[in-house]
Computed example of a mutant assay.
Amino acid sequence: MAKLDDLPHELLHKLLILSSNEQLVIVNRWTYTCLRRTTTRTCYKFVRQKGRWEKVQVVASALQYKFLSVDLLDQIDKNKDELDDGAKKLKKKRKLKMKELKIPSRLFQCEETQDMPVGGRKRRRLLKSCGNNSSGIGENQKRYEIVKKLLCMKISVKEGRGNAGLMLAAKAGNLEMVKLLLKKGADAVVGGENKALLMAVVYGHLPVVKRLVKAGAPVSSIALRYAVQKKHCPVIDWLMKNGAAPDMVTIKLLDKL
């Protein structure tokens, strides 16, 4: 069931206008439709109109809203021919390319109270067990599935477009998201600043640290210093075994541990 603040402002504006209508039946029917019967098809029709029937624009419109889901993206893919025909009728020129779109940062955030997403066989078993009922999937897994679908639709995370997502995933210890982004071309060094690795070190996520280093992130004395400051002993041991040399500041900190 949709929440009131999940709805786009255009629908809320229309609801506000209708609330002054003397015909309360219309108001009640619209409210019921918005809050109780918000289907994937309804959301698709909305973003289709907002994107003026051009597929990339429709996807760009869908990215803005909280009702974004794998089902909605599947619906857009399924109706590709319909969108192409509609764009031709409107004589709309294509200005955007799919690889130019950017995945919203909110999709890389994680709920601390929920399990991290799973991949591989565990993911397939989870999706099979839930079937069409997405209520059995946690918010973290839902976000992972949406990002995975967007990447399959050729949205790019190369050349800095996935840097924010990689850093947020590393900060949260979201190993499956980190793996997915790296596999699709995200920069492990994050523009040369190594921020993703430093985030993983500061928050003590050793599996993420290992994966980033494997993908090319350099093991540095700064990373080691951060690990010592935060007293993440497993991270400290692993970094030192893999070539991180402590500077004088780090040595003094180590003496205090």
Score class of each variant (00 low, 15 high):
M1H: 09
P8E: 03
E10G: 07
E10N: 04
E10T: 02
L11N: 02
L12Q: 06
H13W: 09
L15S: 11
L18P: 06
S20N: 06
E22V: 10
L24Y: 11
L24V: 09
T38Y: 14
T39N: 02
R41A: 13
T42S: 13
T42E: 11
T42D: 14
C43T: 09
Y44M: 07
K45W: 08
V47W: 08
V47E: 07
R48D: 07
Q49C: 05
G51Y: 04
W53R: 11
V59G: 00
L63R: 03
Q64C: 13
Y65L: 11
L68N: 09
D74E: 14
D77W: 08
K78W: 15
N79V: 00
L90S: 03
K91S: 12
K92F: 10
R94G: 06
L101D: 14
K102L: 02
K102I: 09
S105K: 14
L107P: 08
T113S: 13
Q114L: 05
Q114K: 06
D115V: 03
P117W: 02
P117G: 12
V118I: 15
V118D: 05
R121W: 14
K122I: 00
K122V: 01
S129Y: 02
G131N: 08
G131Q: 07
S135C: 12
G136I: 10
G138M: 02
E139H: 09
N140I: 06
N140K: 10
Q141F: 04
I146G: 04
V147H: 00
V147Q: 00
L150Y: 02
K154L: 05
I155T: 09
V157F: 01
V157T: 04
K158F: 04
A169T: 14
E176A: 06
L180Y: 01
K183G: 03
K184T: 08
G185Y: 12
G185A: 11
V189W: 02
G191Q: 11
G191K: 11
A196W: 07
L197R: 00
M199R: 10
M199K: 12
V201P: 06
V201N: 10
Y203C: 10
R211E: 15
R211L: 02
R211F: 00
G216E: 07
A217E: 04
S221M: 05
S221I: 01
S221Y: 02
S221P: 05
A223F: 02
L224K: 00
R225L: 04
R225S: 10
V228D: 12
K230C: 11
W238H: 09
L239R: 08
M240L: 00
N242M: 11
A245Y: 08
V249K: 12
D255G: 00
